[in-house]
Amino acid sequence: MRKPGDIVVGLCFLAIGIAFTVGSVKLKIGVPTEPQAGFFPFIDGIILIALSALFLFQAWRGRAGDSPAFGRVGGPAIVVLALVLYVATLETLGYVITTAILSAVVLRVMETKPGILVLVSLILPVVSYLLFDRLLGVTLPPGLMAAIF
């Protein structure tokens, strides 16, 4: 059975292979006695292009093998979005505030009861901050909290 998903994946691999090969030609490949920066990625890129072509051929004939189906992607998408926002605001807002928001989102997606959700997302950031920053010597960004204390 031919799966369009597999063909898309094969094309992605092919595109990556081509991009790296073109990039390494720009970097100069050199010769075996004097390999340049593009030498190794060039060989790799060619190999990946060949393998992706083979994979595409198999996928076209419907022999690329089984893969699990996508479930509802809403949950993962929300958490990924929350993580991206987390990265963007961590340094300014500080660890405790952003982590509280992130925890709340993860727990919400997992359908936790509101009461417990609030409790956990308040306790977890503070406890982990004290444990890692104060006890284990990891410097976490204080952000807004620095202004208060």
Binding site: V87, S103, L107, V120, V138
Partner: peptide, 25 residues
């Protein structure tokens, strides 16, 4: 759900501590 949220937080701290930067997260 509690295990998951703890894993997320520990991973975030672990990634941050590599270079002290949000980039790694």
């Amino acid at each position: 759900q509690y295990l998951a949220v703890i894993v997320v937080v520990v991973c975030v701290i672990g990634a941050y501590s590599v270079n002290n930067s949000a980039w790694d997260i």
